[in-house]
């Protein structure tokens, strides 16, 4: 297959690095954009990323130096870097404070990339790693989006949802749902019909010891939850709202509750 010169250079680097690691017995896996490429995504135009164990990072860099690459001082503490001509190689060992584990490397599958076979990080691990890297300052979804589209059938979305829990990752899953890349069940987006949600909340308000309220009416319309009925004192009203917010995360809770008043004048009724 013909690639443009820049991609070809990166593939050459990739092969050189993989060869060096194999020769010196450094455990590794291809990850990032080229990892996705190896699994069927379009070729990356960015760096060549490898995952290595944190304890192997320095040795891996020495191995690359021996193979003719030029180590670069990295300011980040979660990766080390080397240049192969114009191509930058990232050796990622502790992305987003989650060190690369032997289990992750063991899960990597040997795949053919251009003319070499090398371990490529599992699709789920690869995507989780990318999503964990999203932060306040780095939250461009376009890269992970291309990866997600290409790897959607190889990814265990339940695991992605469980392992990439940041607000950015959750927002990304909502985006995937909106774009139809994944189904609602994987996106964290509610798919429970509102009637059931209302039924469950109403029962929870009775059964939760914090509330023990049987007379609260619950109406759910889209993202809005309306609570009505009366409670005995203001603190109980607060707790009804607290339980409702807990049970209905992401929905707007509307407080239409009233506090029972019993300060009316006493009057006698004569039963005649």
């Amino acid at each position: 297959m013909e690639y443009e010169p820049h991609i070809r250079d990166m593939l050459t680097t990739l092969k050189r690095v993989a060869g060096a690691f194999k020769a010196d017995g450094v455990p590794f896996a291809l990850t990032g954009g080229f990892g996705a490429f190896a699994r069927g995504a379009p070729p990356s135009r960015h760096d060549v990323d490898f995952a290595v164990l944190p304890e192997d990072a320095e040795r891996a860099l020495e191995v690359l130096a021996k193979a003719g690459l030029r180590p670069v001082d990295a300011v980040e503490d979660w990766l080390v870097k080397a240049h192969d001509g114009d191509v930058l190689v990232d050796l990622i060992h502790s992305p987003a404070d989650s060190p690369v584990t032997p289990a992750q490397l063991a899960r990597a599958t040997p795949l053919q990339v251009d003319s070499v076979r090398l371990p490529v990080m599992e699709a789920t691990d690869l995507l989780v790693m990318r999503l964990r890297a999203l932060t306040e300052h780095e939250c461009d979804f376009s890269g992970p989006l291309a990866t997600a589209r290409a790897l959607r059938e190889q990814v265990d979305w339940g695991r992605v949802r469980a392992e990439a829990g940041s607000p950015y990752a959750r927002a990304f899953l909502v985006l995937l749902h909106q774009l139809g890349v994944v189904g609602a069940e994987h996106s964290g987006v509610r798919h429970e019909p509102p009637q059931y949600a209302a039924g469950h909340l109403q029962q929870a308000l009775a059964e939760d010891p914090r509330t023990a309220e049987q007379g609260i009416r619950v109406r759910v319309a889209g993202d809005d939850v309306y609570l009505s009925g009366s409670v005995s004192c203001p603190r109980r009203r607060d707790r009804v709202l607290e339980v409702a917010r807990e049970r209905m995360p992401g929905r707007r809770i509307h407080d239409e509750l009233s506090v029972v008043r019993f300060d009316g004048p006493v009057r006698e009724e004569r039963l005649t």
């Binding site: 029972v260 006493v266 009057r267 006698e268 039963l271």
Partner: peptide, 20 residues
């Protein structure tokens, strides 16, 4: 027979008073 629901929220007053 006269029936009275004396649940506090229904009464709105501390108690109902009924003369028999």
């Amino acid at each position: 027979v006269r029936v009275r629901n004396v649940a506090l929220p229904v009464l709105g007053r501390p108690y109902g008073v009924y003369g028999i």
